[in-house]
Design a protein around this nucleic acid. Structure first.
Lengths: 118, 118
DNA sequence: TAGACTATACAAGAATATTTGAAATATTGT
DNA sequence: ACAATATTTCAAATATTCTTGTATAGTCTA
């Protein structure tokens, strides 16, 4: 996770429409949805949806596979996880003990629960 | 954490400059930095920095306190934590068992480690 | 192959964000 | 009060993103 990817991912989430798309796909993980289902669910014109799906796919926030004439989209949950790691890792590079207030610090910077599985 | 706030926070992180600012402030938590120090560290013209600081402050991603003629900025780590919660909570609302692949699912959706402190 | 269906590519305009310098505000020190 | 310092506000130029319609490409069924 470098800065460029992180920025691109945040851009992908920084629009109400794209956030809706992502959340919809997360709710429908792991089967995903085809473009038409997303368009219906969110009441979006197909071209506009396609514009956002393309941006999100380029950012690797979602994945697409072809199914006949349909395009099936799925949330890329592992890159999302990496982004979360990237965000929280920051708080450990400097002064872990000061990162969050007491209890939060424990969950972020110790070998404890928060995002430290690897 | 509603959608509006989440979108605003993502917008705040969706620029290389603002991401740099945030990461810099996270590294300097909890003391923070005054505007001039940030401008020097990132080699930014003061007006441009001010523009971004204002946006980030409005989004509540950072906080500001006045110190004489200086403005001291600090990363708002708890709102960041809420944003992470918001992101990962999504994967639990639908099909937790399918959310991440096996091991990842455990860290995200069980009462286990990941972001489940509350 | 024809015809229907799904989705994307392209292009133009509308809307929004970014950057910068000049001016303004506020505080400190003499 | 005056000059110096720190930062913000404002306005204008530039750049980027978003939205939509039309046209295009691929796929399915008969």
């Amino acid at each position: 996770m470098d800065k460029q990817l992180a920025t691109t991912l945040f851009e992908s989430l920084a629009s109400g429409i794209r956030l809706d798309i992502f959340r919809l796909l997360v709710k429908h993980a792991p089967s995903g949805l085809v473009a038409g289902e997303i368009a219906t669910a969110l009441a979006l014109p197909p071209t506009n949806l396609s514009f956002h799906l393309k941006a999100m796919t380029y950012a690797s926030l979602i994945n697409v596979t072809q199914e006949g004439r349909y395009q099936r989209y799925r949330a890329n949950l592992s890159v999302m996880q990496s982004l979360i790691d990237y965000l929280t890792a920051e708080c450990c590079t400097g002064n872990p003990e000061h990162c969050f207030d007491s209890d939060k610090a424990a969950s972020c910077c110790d070998s404890g629960p928060l995002l430290s599985s690897t």
